[in-house]
Simulated scan of single mutants.
Amino acid sequence: MLALTRDGRVLVDASGRPTAVSHHYPAHRLVRIDPDTRAIRLDDDEVAREIASGEGIRAAGIRGRLGDRRVAKALALLDNRDRLRFDPRDGSAVTFDDDGRVARGASGRMIFPRTDPAVIGLVSLAGNDEVLIARNVRGNFFSLIAGFVDPGENLEEAFEREVWEETARRVSDIAYWGSQPWPPGGSLMMGFTARTSDRDALAETDGELAETVWVSPATIADYPLAPEGSIARDMLNHWYFGQTGKVLESS
């Protein structure tokens, strides 16, 4: 049984792998991850008890471990249970099925966990080996351009719009790269690659980004990057390896 904490961490063993809890907890607090795995969110005193009961057990940051689909699903389902208390249609209190996934209110209508579509992508400079990375005004690391899909948009339109709003660059040659569930934002991130001829911004931006930087294989290591296990880091790793044949070191 996987254990997440109230402050967004996961219990891991001495090697840093998510570890099972050693104490028994009531079934109504659990969510099913797969036929053999359940997950629970522990209160502070329960976390302290688990840490004290096992050698090397500690609470570690969850973002760098979301490449583990069990951890990603656990976070998504537990967050959904914390947020979804009432049926949005009639306001009645909800109860969850034995898996902790589907909720029902007074009407009996099934309410599934919500996932919001979002786009993220690697923008390269035409005729150059540079890509665009950015730091959010609320962040302390550099990632890729990203945002949620608006109603009525397809994914390519959403990515083109986000790049323009956040960086004031025009993009072309938009191509799908891959996807990743991202429970911290309740989203499914769909990754794209694109090109631009605009080294400099062409207009005012929406102010969501504190800083945008063009980086090359020689300069990207100078910047703190999105955590390992995120699609942004995976895309940067893939680009860097294609340029250099080397693995991008953690920063």
Score class of each variant (00 low, 15 high):
A175W: 03
I51S: 01
L75A: 12
D7H: 02
F96H: 12
D222M: 05
H238T: 11
R85D: 02
R85V: 06
S92A: 03
W214V: 06
R169F: 02
V123L: 10
P88G: 02
P151D: 15
L78G: 10
D7Y: 02
T95A: 15
R85A: 11
I33G: 14
W239K: 01
R38S: 13
R70W: 12
H23L: 10
R114N: 03
L248M: 06
G105Y: 08
L84Y: 08
A106L: 01
G91R: 09
W164I: 03
S251G: 14
I220G: 12
V213R: 11
L11Y: 03
I40W: 10
V171I: 15
V21W: 08
V131L: 09
A39L: 15
L144F: 07
R32K: 14
V171R: 05
G127F: 01
S216Y: 06
S53T: 01
E166P: 15
P181E: 15
D99N: 14
V119D: 07
S251N: 15
V21M: 05
T205I: 03
P113G: 08
L11D: 03
A126I: 07
Y240A: 02
T193F: 02
V149M: 14
G186D: 07
A175P: 03
R114P: 00
D222H: 11
R89F: 09
R83Y: 08
E50F: 00
D97A: 04
D45P: 05
F159R: 03
A103G: 11
A93W: 01
S179K: 14
L30C: 06
P217N: 03
L155T: 09
D99Q: 13
A76D: 10
P26S: 12
D68A: 15
A20H: 10
E50T: 00
I120C: 09
A27H: 14
G8I: 05
G121Y: 04
G185T: 11
I231W: 07
D116M: 05
L84N: 10
A146W: 05
H24M: 06
W214M: 03
T193V: 03
A226P: 13
S22F: 01
R89K: 11
H23W: 09
D129T: 07
T219M: 04
A52M: 00
F148T: 13
R233Y: 03
F241Y: 07
I220L: 13
Q243A: 13
A203N: 01
D116K: 05
A175M: 10
D97H: 06
R233C: 02
A59L: 03
H24G: 14
L84G: 10
I145R: 01
S197W: 14
N128Y: 00
S179Y: 14
G245Q: 04
E46H: 10
F142V: 06
R114V: 13
A76P: 00
G56N: 04
G139F: 05
D222G: 11
A48Y: 00
F159P: 03
R41Q: 13
E157W: 09
L122I: 04
L144N: 09
E208V: 12
T115R: 12
F142E: 07
R49E: 10
A52H: 01
D222P: 15
D173I: 12
R114I: 10
A232G: 14
A103P: 12
V149Y: 08
E208W: 13
A106Y: 00
F142M: 08
R17V: 11
T5P: 01
P88K: 01
L132G: 06
V247M: 07
I33V: 15
Y223M: 04
T5I: 00
